[in-house]
Design a protein around this nucleic acid. Structure first.
Lengths: 118, 118
DNA sequence: TAAGTGTACTAATAGTAGTAATACAGTTGA
DNA sequence: TCAACTGTATTACTACTATTAGTACACTTA
């Protein structure tokens, strides 16, 4: 299900995160489907369970999965995932607006720039 | 002119960068005014010249100052500074838009969100 | 050309990120 | 209830990177 590339310079947990993101976004893993357990997957990949745990924690932080103690990790609903990402983006936008105002660029200026992008 | 806080966890060069940013943005340092030399300031603060050099390189990268080999570092014109920051922001906005489109959020949606911020 | 200036290279060190070993804690089903 | 599964927290080892410094080079100006 998940394949690691040990020659890849990227950290193992990051590779795991990206693989699962892909599987979820492409619909291979369906809503509420159970992910392999931390231990199983770690054994299968011959790495430490904590590395998988770190990957799952990150996936949860980004809204891709949810985790239930003692039961397992599960694919989050598409709605929740998108809602999560939307909030993240809105936060980023707010920070950007603050910075922009610091150099005398108003929200209107930003909207004007966005309009040109269309 | 510049004061360091050795108890501060932040790196020395970063403290120097922030101090100068403040001095420039508040107009204490005027356009084309010469900054203290790398060696002088280093001696005054009892740190290594390379640390000041690193701070100045960062300030130049962000458009706050410009540097002339053999002559010194000088405060950039306000216009250039703002232009520089504006381009940086616009780049960030473009990246944000791409991400937003990835989750089905259009430029119009972003504009709507911005409008509510006003 | 001396005395100032910025810059590049290298190295020592401290801090952090990645991974692992291990122990703790919740859930489930025979 | 308890064994066997599940996620989680704590700690520690290690490799990498960031920070700082030592030193040498290169340009500018009077």
């Amino acid at each position: 299900m998940i394949i690691l590339d040990l020659k890849d310079a990227r950290p193992l947990y990051e590779q795991v995160v990206d693989r699962f993101k892909h599987l979820i976004l492409c619909g291979v893993l369906q809503e509420d489907e159970k992910l392999p357990s931390v231990r199983n997957l770690a054994m299968e990949l011959s790495i430490n369970p904590n590395t998988i745990q770190k990957a799952f924690t990150e996936l949860e932080r980004e809204g891709f999965i949810y985790s239930v103690k003692g039961r397992g990790n599960f694919v989050a609903s598409n709605g929740i995932l998108i809602e999560h990402k939307k909030k993240e983006l809105e936060q980023q936008i707010e920070e950007l607006v603050k910075e922009a105002e610091g150099i005398g660029m108003s929200i209107e200026d930003i909207i004007e720039f966005l309009t040109k992008l269309k």
